[in-house]
Design a protein around this nucleic acid. Structure first.
Length: 121
DNA sequence: ATCCTGACCCAAG
DNA sequence: GCTTGGGCCAGGA
């Protein structure tokens, strides 16, 4: 497979369904979150340019999180939204990156990532 | 087209 | 802290 030129890539994106463009934007934003930091679903959605799509961010991570730093996306206020074992795994992964918790929630004051330009403040 | 669901969010009480 | 209700949107049945 030859590598696509930027122009070809752009063209391919335009032809692609909207959902694919969104997902691509979500993946890109998710990958911008550095180790030891987290962002909320709403933050990722907004930073990707789709302010009302926080639920879809979750859907994407659910589908193909394995190929992404999915553990760095949490609910508003630092809540872990995964249930049961999955939730424990996310917490463990984050703690392994040095993220600290206050009770059930991630210490957002310490670890919330700020995307440059985007997202309030 | 309708109905249901979801790793959501937020304001209320 | 909690629960509830409403809002949001696309995808699948």
């Amino acid at each position: 497979m030859r590598r696509l030129t930027p122009r070809e890539a752009a063209r391919r994106l335009l032809r692609a369904p909207k959902s694919a463009q969104r997902d691509a934007a979500f993946r890109k934003v998710n990958r911008q979150i550095p180790r030891g930091r987290v962002a909320t679903y709403a933050q990722v959605a907004a930073a990707a340019g789709y302010p009302l799509y926080h639920r879809h961010v979750a859907q994407l991570l659910h589908r193909e999180g394995n190929a992404l730093p999915w553990q760095r996306v949490v609910g508003a206020g630092g809540q872990i939204k995964l249930k049961y074992e999955a939730g424990l795994e996310q917490r463990a992964r984050l703690e392994m990156e040095g993220v600290r918790f206050r009770g059930k929630r991630v210490d957002m004051v310490e670890h919330q990532h700020r995307f440059k330009g985007w997202d309030w403040e």
